[in-house]
Design a protein around this nucleic acid. Structure first.
Lengths: 216, 216
DNA sequence: GTCTATATTGGGATAGAC
DNA sequence: GTCTATCCCAATATAGAC
């Protein structure tokens, strides 16, 4: 079954919006990218105007992201030392951000024109990223500075992941050429304490947010 | 002495570019913001076209930022406890990013069209942010995970600061409502080790960023 | 439901008076 | 060196044939 034109238009738009921005993407370019004749109004047989398209694309993308199960990694690393478990979680967070990337890009271009979009993206990130992260921190054996102010530590954790991700996206290379493995490992140890030998017993990160939560 | 029209145009453009992007800012709006009659081509008596204006604005901004003295804090906090000194440095880094904000905003809008701009902004940030940060880390009594991989720790530090800053800018509020003080304090302790009692004497936040830096 | 063709608007840029 | 007026083009959107 071949995708309908409407779907192809939305796919094309998502691609182009990220690259050139909504305002920078003429309808004619979307038509071309979707395999329609550029300049023909064929687009308008499927959407009333560009704003409607933007809204639909955003909605579809948010729905898709909301369905991404959040718990894969945390569950999988049950039984590993705290820092390693957390490092795995952080790698998964980077991956989650990569999946959010089209939305983030649209948000960057349109945050002035679509103020509510920021709130929606933030909500998804909060739900998936930060709360889970805090749970992990509480279950780990956190380092002293973390224990002193867990919320602040969670903010540091999230900020670091977001900053690393955006640096890669915007500058094309990670800060100081540190690859994701090294980055997440170091960050995790700063949060959960160094796991020197792999000694950490167990029962740390076992039981939580195990349930896969594919909804409805 | 009143600013010349050329300067006022550049000021207006910098303001508008950040808010609405370069492509989203018509020349007519720049004229209006600069106190000229919108729609009159008066703009073109000062710049060949919009691209030239963008280039000039970027150049002026980069020159301004390059002049911002970087060392205030690091120098001033000599002798203070490692974590407190570092926290001060991180606060200053946040402030430095705030001063870079117009450039960052332009970069976000134009990174596709002005690929070299990304490299220039990155260079400024590297020069001012990361290298100093690494120096501080080496001089501190770093925590174990930091000592293990200083470069990775510096990447974490920078990413966290950048991520925190951008979160505030894009979402209007810091992650988990953690204010800059709490954020930098926690991050600093994760890097430099906790400074337990707060017994630390004096001379902490006195002497730094004193020098007014009005150039030329 | 896609095409060709076209009306329309908004914004970049120029001409020439003052 | 700023104005009014205008040109021009790119992009939105529509009309109507097929």
């Amino acid at each position: 079954m071949v995708k309908g034109t409407r779907e192809r238009i939305m796919d094309a738009a998502l691609r182009l919006f990220g690259q050139r921005g909504v305002a920078g993407t003429p309808v004619t370019a979307i038509e071309a990218e979707a395999g329609l004749s550029a300049g023909s109004g064929s687009f308008y047989r499927h959407f009333a105007d560009k704003d409607e398209l933007v809204a639909e694309v955003v909605d579809r993308e948010m729905a898709r992201v909301a369905k991404i199960p959040a718990a894969q990694v945390s569950r999988a690393v049950a039984g590993t030392p705290a820092a390693d478990a957390l490092a795995g979680q952080l790698l998964a967070d980077l991956d989650f951000l990569r999946q959010l990337l089209p939305m983030i890009e649209i948000l960057m271009w349109e945050r002035g024109r679509l103020p509510d979009l920021a709130a929606r993206v933030q909500k998804v990130m909060l739900d998936r990223g930060i709360e889970l992260g805090v749970a992990d921190l509480l279950l780990c054996a956190p380092t002293a500075p973390v224990r002193e102010d867990i919320a602040a530590a969670a903010a540091v954790m999230t900020s670091a992941v977001v900053g690393y991700f955006l640096t890669v996206e915007y500058f094309g290379a990670p800060p100081l050429q540190i690859d994701p493995q090294r980055f997440t490992t170091t960050l995790a140890r700063m949060l959960a304490g160094t796991s020197p030998t792999g000694a950490r017993p167990d029962s740390v990160a076992d039981e939580h947010h195990a349930t896969d939560q594919t909804p409805t």
